[in-house]
């Protein structure tokens, strides 16, 4: 196996592990897959250029992840009274940029996420962009961008990361 294939394998494994954490709504385990400077971004417009000068659905850094994971299990967060169940399918995973020296890469993939919440089944879909970098014990997520195909539509409450 050449190094490109090895990197793709590692990236795929990380994406699958992340999807599994979200399927189980295990946010503390999910956070461990992110670097200290890691961010999670869900734009609110197609081709949105940046998360600061345009509104987004999510743009969490470690601070907001820390607050969100605590809020998620708080007994008085009424919107979390309803169980969230999720099932992610990720495909078309490909490395689109690579820095062999630093061991970092950008990975694009497509996803479908089936979500069950408040007695309703919903389907979300779109494209992921993951920027991965080498941590002490393997790859970590430095940036994740989630482009929903209907990012500019009216959405219902989305109380977990996709």
């Amino acid at each position: 196996m050449n190094t490109g294939d090895a990197l793709l394998k590692q990236a795929e494994a990380l994406l699958y592990r992340e999807a599994d954490c979200l399927d189980r709504a295990d946010l503390p385990a999910w956070m461990e897959l992110y670097s200290e400077d890691g961010t999670y971004w869900m734009p609110a417009a197609p081709e949105q250029e940046d998360p600061l000068n345009h509104i987004s659905h999510f743009y969490d850094d470690r601070v907001m992840m820390e607050i969100r994971r605590r809020n998620f299990v708080h007994p008085r967060a009424a919107s979390k009274d309803h169980t969230v169940r999720c099932s992610h399918l990720i495909g078309n995973i490909r490395i689109t940029a690579e820095d062999a020296v630093a061991g970092s890469c950008t990975v694009h993939s497509n996803f479908h996420a089936m979500l069950y919440y408040r007695e309703e089944k919903r389907l979300y879909g779109g494209r992921y962009e993951h920027v991965l970098k080498q941590g002490a014990s393997g790859l970590l997520i430095q940036r994740k961008r989630v482009d929903l195909i209907d990012c500019d539509a009216a959405h219902k409450s989305l109380i977990i990361y996709l």
Partner: peptide, 22 residues
């Protein structure tokens, strides 16, 4: 302004969804 809108009014915020739940 955008930070505030996102943290309070977005579907992914930790404030608005609890209002809507009520």
């Amino acid at each position: 302004t955008l930070l505030y809108s996102r943290l309070i009014n977005s579907v992914g915020s930790m404030v608005g969804p609890d209002d809507l739940e009520a």
